[in-house]
Design a binder for these strands. Structure first.
Lengths: 230, 230
DNA sequence: ACTTACCTTAGGGGAGCCATAAAAAATCCC
DNA sequence: GGGATTTTTTATGGCTCCCCTAAGGTAAGT
């Protein structure tokens, strides 16, 4: 469940927003003043902040700037005046979206969801901001289930084969030397023969290529290494 | 400088967008078909993609989905109908922004800048794909994929050919003697004939020049050596 | 015109790299 | 512990690309 902070002095509007967001299972916190909101935003962890521009005390502009100095939390700016939006956008203070009053609550919810999704996608759960699924020209890789489908048909992959294929498919079109691949898939310090990589490439090709002599997926770059072609 | 891909079938619109973006020092590439755009988006590295929803061939929806499976490049969706935007936003296919035609070019530029700033903020310095690409008058060199495109058409390069061309293109307008080139591309201590360089230059010219007798890219500086002309 | 430097072309030898198979070792799994 | 599976090593044959050569043609400088 995502935590959302609403910084908004008009109580009725704040509560309307909250009600709709809660319908979508968000956990909502409301702050009615700029100072309180800023304080809260800096001290606690929210997944997204909805920030009104016109506030008593510190204004939205300043709050946004200060939050950005510390955090990357997505911020949606709300304003009654379209002109303000344009002005702010021009200043590039780092808000993630802008919405003018009056707006439909469902639109707000939609935008909130979109931003959360994007944020998660980019910053992600963990360092790897990639999909659980990779699909390239008939090759489908399910990373969580560790399964590979070739044109819908499942093929058995051993651990190393799977890791190697996945790494290549996650970085398509990029050429890796055997050394690079070895260091990536195997332990860095492990002393081994990079010929192992060759053998595994062959094994993988047997499973995904129609003609291993003319590979369509894993290409050999002579004198350099291999690449997964897209 | 950021690279932007516009996927748009209406040429006039695409060019209008391009003109405005180039005023802000973006490097703009245009693809007029869905297939071409998708291909390009997957194979090359762009910093942002502007994608029309209505396209001949593969539609924008599908393109967006496919790009997202591999890359996190920011995508701005363009559509003539507000309803489409709402529909797509609901589906959550991973576009980063939506804009309806007609829009003011300056607004587009503003949004592009905002998204690039955000992407950079979230993902980081973007140091990964910095100097991976070289593009000079129709010659495009993808250093990580080790591929060369001449007016959009891919040409096969051997290792030495690629290294030599890349080195010249990375140091344009500078003249290198054959000795310098030989020491640069080949092992320093390897004793070899510098005539080898000549032969490789010839091979490269066959692949990138329209008329090898009047080379437009790799120029011969008589009595000195070669240079890549810009 | 003569010289000098460069381009083009073709081919062969050779080095290095890769694919493949098969054996050996390690690991996993009852 | 023993068989099956996976991983690594080793060996070999083949193939690509590179490098050199050499000779005739072309362009530039004097």
């Amino acid at each position: 469940m995502s935590r959302i902070l609403i910084i908004e002095d008009e109580v009725t509007i704040a509560e309307l927003e909250r009600d709709y967001l809660e319908l979508s299972d968000f956990e909502v916190t409301i702050e009615n003043t700029g100072d309180g909101g800023l304080d809260r935003a800096l001290k606690e962890e929210f997944d997204l902040i909805i920030l009104d521009l016109m506030l008593p005390g510190v204004d939205g502009f300043e709050i946004c700037k200060q939050i950005r100095q510390i955090k990357n939390t997505p911020i949606i700016m709300v304003s009654a005046k379209k002109e303000d939006i344009d002005k702010i956008r021009g200043l590039g203070i780092g808000a993630d979206d802008y919405i003018t009053k009056p707006f439909s609550p469902s639109e707000l919810v939609a935008r909130v969801k979109a931003h959360l999704a994007r944020y998660k996608r980019l910053v992600g759960s963990g360092a790897e901001h990639k999909n659980e699924w990779i699909e390239i020209r008939g090759i489908k890789i399910d990373k969580t289930a560790r399964r590979v489908y070739v044109n819908g048909e499942e093929k058995n992959f051993t651990t190393k084969e799977f890791d190697l294929l996945t790494f290549l498919a996650e970085n398509p079109n990029r050429v890796f030397t055997k050394d690079e691949l070895f260091r990536e898939i195997w332990d860095m310090d492990s002393i081994g023969d990079i010929a192992t990589v060759t053998v595994h490439i062959k094994k993988i090709r047997e499973k995904i290529e129609v003609d291993t002599a003319n590979p369509q997926y894993i290409e050999t770059i002579w004198g350099v290494g291999y690449r997964f072609k897209v």
